[in-house]
Design a protein around this nucleic acid. Sequence first.
DNA 1: TAGATTGTTAATCGATTAACAATC
DNA 2: TAGATTGTTAATCGATTAACAATC
Lengths: 211, 211
Amino acid sequence: MGGLLVSVSISVMRRLPAYLHYLKQLPPDVENISATAIAAQLDLGDVLVRKDLNSISGAGKPRTGYSVRGLIDDLENFLGYRKKNQAVIVGAGKLGCAMLDHSGFEEYGLHILAAFDSDPKKIGITDTGKYIYPLSDFKEFCSQADIKIGVITTPASAAQEICDLMCGSGIRAIWNFAPTHLTAGKDILIQNENMAASLALLSAHLSEMDC
Amino acid sequence: MGGLLVSVSISVMRRLPAYLHYLKQLPPDVENISATAIAAQLDLGDVLVRKDLNSISGAGKPRTGYSVRGLIDDLENFLGYRKKNQAVIVGAGKLGCAMLDHSGFEEYGLHILAAFDSDPKKIGITDTGKYIYPLSDFKEFCSQADIKIGVITTPASAAQEICDLMCGSGIRAIWNFAPTHLTAGKDILIQNENMAASLALLSAHLSEMDC
DNA sequence: TAGATTGTTAATCGATTAACAATC
DNA sequence: TAGATTGTTAATCGATTAACAATC
């Protein structure tokens, strides 16, 4: 039930999950760890790690380092992994269904309740027993369940329309997998999972090596 | 068959696909467009757009702007979307299969040939007719087909092992969806699709709003 | 020509790193 | 105490923005 009001830059935020993951896979008998050790494992500078950790935790002690347990606690709280964020998906294609049935997001506090699709053939129930509802039920469902997070896995052509629908249904944060730029009011966070950019970076790396 | 050897920072690279997507969805009668117009649509600064475009294309003309056609050509070539990059997936779970069957990556020049899994129950053929082979065939397959890109969609626990296998099979660029940090030789590009970080950003945005 | 737009050089901003002081 | 490690202040680096000159 933290609620610590610390604000941290986006670059820092991106590294925090990596620290947490590293700490969690340490053998259970490791009680303390130094920033230098973490940095070496994750290919980062040691001062950077110290600064990052210091900004969300006060747990570091000279000579001994950081308490692994304490750091995990602070990271999980700060990252919201101990909250239960309810979410819904729009777009029950392959990717949408894969995400709906994927249990791994629970670990990060994301609980995906259901998916919605405009295609009547998609309506039904998945392998893991989750429901796919008609898109017409979307707004009602979201306000009933007080959903704040929406995931878009539609084709690019439908994404902006769905984005608007989400904004009109009380959703405040959107995780967008459609390869397109979405516009929404500035109190709505749009987090793009930018696969096209990732692919371009892979391709560029290969081209570089050809020379 | 471009091959222009321009190198561009990662931040620029990430924006290029957004420009391309915007240009492609313009009505076909728009022949020229100004950096200012693009910038407004994508919530970017106009000078930034001009600099980005200028670094990969020489097509800008004072007073008229950029040729939409010319820009699309230059972007597609630069981003490697017109190349055919062959790739394979390891980890034929929900996400792996969704990606294997997803036709959308072709548009970005990524052709996913097949998937591999260590679980014998997963071996077989998908809805779209692609094969899932036993992991033991992986190395042989990659060298035969001269595969340079590997996609990892295994659980975190198996990811490093698969990463090593890929490196030993001639793969030069890895697209990692497992939530873990991978280490490989520095001539191998590891592109992490950092979902945990995305989720943390969504969660942080919601917490901020509670106050 | 005048005006819109590009491209470039200088200024600003933010993030990372280096140097060092503080502490157990 | 001496030494390892943290945390902080100053320096560097890179990316973005502002100002302006060049061009059609």
